[in-house]
């Protein structure tokens, strides 16, 4: 582990060198909001962003990703994407989400399409400078990350600290001009940033300890809240779309004009959409909005944690902002279940 001190000019030059070496996807301003996009010049980078519209997941699990090319006679060829690239300025909660996806795509039957993109990525995390309106990463332990990244940028008064790790980190450090190690005072200021972020990234206060959420949900299957909230749900899937830990997908074929060659690709799907569990012939195995709405909170709080041992909500707050009906606040949902236990459930 090495930590370097960069002043603003050094940072700009370093980002410029990254851009010259590889495609760099970083945070840019788009109207009044922020998005991850391809950086053409260092000046575009906005490390002081609050939250991006979509999470950086889209570069590892793209909204649309070609899996196979097919030719007449049912010949399928795998299409791989392994061109190295850099993700620059990923907030800790979004990085935790990517690490969760790593576990999910790797477990049992490894998905080599995901894994190749992931290996091709050099990820530079940036500590949060400006808290977004709905962030609650501080409540779910994702305000700060201490390992598994390739680089970590933290704002300190007149510049940034850059910590690098591993082989990819060495490559990042090799592009620094006259690198100077951070001193003890600067490292201490970085600790203050972390301490502060843990405290302040709590725009909503989760009252259920994350490790107790699974048990709470097991008791809450019949809670009236699911029906009550879902009555307002448009089944639009916006909460799925903006979520850094959602990874459900559909697979489709697209043929070229000759109709015999084409690609099989996957696209993001969402469990809130009405036809998500519908089979050919029209039977829908999750037909009600309440059941679909509940499924999402169970996946985040129980089902995925059973698979990977971590809460699958990282507290980015994007779903809260995106939901037109105002029903997608996970903190509000989980707190309600805790504060108003359902009578039938409590009796068990």
């Amino acid at each position: 582990m090495s930590v370097y001190k960069l002043n603003m000019e050094q940072l700009r030059n370093w980002v410029g060198r990254l851009i010259a070496e590889r495609p760099v996807y970083g945070v840019r301003q788009k109207d009044e909001r922020f998005v991850f996009g391809r950086l053409k010049k260092p000046e575009e980078l906005r490390l002081d962003y609050d939250v991006t519209i979509l999470p950086p997941k889209k570069y590892i699990l793209p909204t649309r990703e070609n899996l196979l090319a097919y030719q007449p006679g049912e010949h399928y060829e795998s299409l791989w994407a392994d061109e190295p690239f850099v993700l620059l300025g990923v907030h800790p909660y979004d990085f935790v989400a990517i690490r969760q996806l790593d576990l999910l795509f790797e477990r049992e039957k490894p998905d080599e399409h995901y894994l190749r993109r992931r290996r091709a990525a050099t990820i530079i995390v940036a500590d949060v400078e400006r808290a977004s309106d709905n962030v609650f990463a501080g409540c779910v332990g994702t305000a700060v990350v201490k390992d598994a990244f390739d680089g970590l940028l933290t704002r300190v008064e007149d510049g940034y600290l850059l910590e690098v790790r591993g082989e990819k980190g060495e490559w990042l450090a090799s592009l620094l001009e006259s690198p100077s190690p951070a001193n003890a005072a600067e490292l201490s200021r970085r600790n203050d940033v972390w301490e502060n972020n843990r405290r302040r990234l709590r725009k909503h206060e989760l009252k259920v300890p994350p490790e107790q959420l699974g048990d709470l949900l097991r008791r809450s299957v019949d809670h009236p809240l699911w029906e009550e909230k879902a009555r307002l749900c448009y089944s639009c899937g916006s909460c799925n779309l903006v979520c850094p830990t959602c990874y459900c997908f559909d697979v489709r074929d697209e043929s070229d004009w000759s109709l015999d060659k084409g690609v099989r690709y996957r696209v993001w799907d969402g469990c809130l959409l009405e036809d998500f569990a519908m089979v050919a012939g029209g039977h829908n195995f999750r037909p009600t909005r309440a059941a679909r709405y509940r499924h999402r909170y169970y996946r985040k709080g129980l089902y995925v944690p059973e698979m990977i041992g971590e809460l699958a909500c990282v507290g980015c707050g994007r779903c809260i902002t995106a939901c037109t009906a105002g029903i997608a606040n996970p903190v509000e949902v989980y707190n309600r279940l805790q504060e108003e236990p359902h009578e039938d459930d409590a009796a068990e």
């Binding site: 049992e108 039957k109 990874y247 997908f249 559909d250 799907d269 569990a277 089979v279």
Partner: peptide, 19 residues
């Protein structure tokens, strides 16, 4: 039991019965 088993490899999410 029938469900929408789209990917067959435990990734895509469509066939889930609860967890």
């Amino acid at each position: 039991l029938e469900r929408r088993m789209k990917c067959g490899v435990g990734k895509c999410g469509h066939c889930q019965i609860n967890h």
